[in-house]
Design a protein around this nucleic acid. Sequence first.
DNA 1: CAAAGTATGTTGCTTGTGCAACGAAAGAAG
DNA 2: CTTCTTTCGTTGCACAAGCAACATACTTTG
Lengths: 227, 227
Amino acid sequence: MKEFYPLLMNSPLLASIEERDIPSLLSCLGATEVSVPRDGFAMMAGDEPDHIGIVLEGRLQVIREDDSGSRALLSLLSPGDFYGETLACAGVVQSPVSVVAGQPSRVLKLGFRRILSTCPNSCAFHSALVGNMVAVIARKNLMLQSRMEILDKKTIRERLLLYLTNQKKQRGEKFAVPFDRSELAEYLAVDRSALSREMGRMRDEGVIRFHKNQFEVVDGVKQVFKN
Amino acid sequence: MKEFYPLLMNSPLLASIEERDIPSLLSCLGATEVSVPRDGFAMMAGDEPDHIGIVLEGRLQVIREDDSGSRALLSLLSPGDFYGETLACAGVVQSPVSVVAGQPSRVLKLGFRRILSTCPNSCAFHSALVGNMVAVIARKNLMLQSRMEILDKKTIRERLLLYLTNQKKQRGEKFAVPFDRSELAEYLAVDRSALSREMGRMRDEGVIRFHKNQFEVVDGVKQVFKN
DNA sequence: CAAAGTATGTTGCTTGTGCAACGAAAGAAG
DNA sequence: CTTCTTTCGTTGCACAAGCAACATACTTTG
């Protein structure tokens, strides 16, 4: 009973899969445990993404290098997070990103080829894994779409209000946003101080109410969606 | 031999599946052909997305209704296009969008339940379909990510240059963009005239060269990516 | 060839917002 | 309580870009 099984159980990739099935699932997939030294690469830009990596230990960064050599940080991976699923599923032959370890890490690599092809045993948890993987990608897709609708708006007010009304639908009249101001500004792709300024205006106009990260949309519709 | 088989063959959903396998695949999936009258709904917001729809004939619109009732057009569907794959795969229980027919249409509905579950026959093309569907979603994912990186930029120049350098990587030094000016402006989420203005400046400064939709990035890196 | 329609470029005006710098408030730590 | 750190709000300034209106191609059609 490997020590990282609890970690895997909590991963959305392996949701609804019994712990006792994990060993056979892993062997069925030809999973290999890999140690990545600090600054080592779990996946290199240019290589074919042929596996899904699940972080067991440490911390890794997904980065994209511009032609100029400057690195853009795309995301941070902690234990339980994974990478490569989108690229592998898309059939990309040259990865546009690299995955490097910010500190010594361990990664569980699942060969992609053996994930989609039905295994000879036609194990039930295998097809469950595929379903989970698809769900993960599809949900990421929806999150991207949601943010894109926001970034399509041109003014801070429109972006914030669209974000807040979406939250309102999901969480009810009065809700807490999972961001502090800086993170919210980054999510909306606007300047923090400009966001603060606009929030003040909107509160003065009675469009929204907020305290800390508690928000309430008083009258969002009439104020913005004129078209 | 149904008349719409050639259409299905060309769909990325059914890539690499033989035409002779299509009938058994469709029956295996419990596919049903549905007629949608003008202004009729192929899928309604609020309902559970339980199928993937492939447009056989006509034209449909994917729309999102705001609380205020104003409709936002998200995409247009022509024969060969399909909808619902992301929502179904994500396990969304209430569709946030509706699919309505702009003109009398016919749609082939594939029940989602039977797509992921391995069929009793364990037919090879069935798993090929799953692979195709996953690839479709994953690629859409990459496209969204790509555009999002662009919309994260704050100036027109940055957005355009990021877009052009991405194109350059894919298509080589001198390339044609698949947009006219208006479409390009919309993709970059900027004003058309402002884009035109900025393009003029960039040409004067020797950063880019272009004629019609033929573009060339002369010196993009030093001009923009200072950080 | 002429006329109509479409795509692209130009320009003045206005404003939203990025940017920087500072101040206030709220915790966290000693 | 004091001090340090972090978060959040405020403000002056400059300018990028939205908007509208018009001019100039370029294309299509009759």
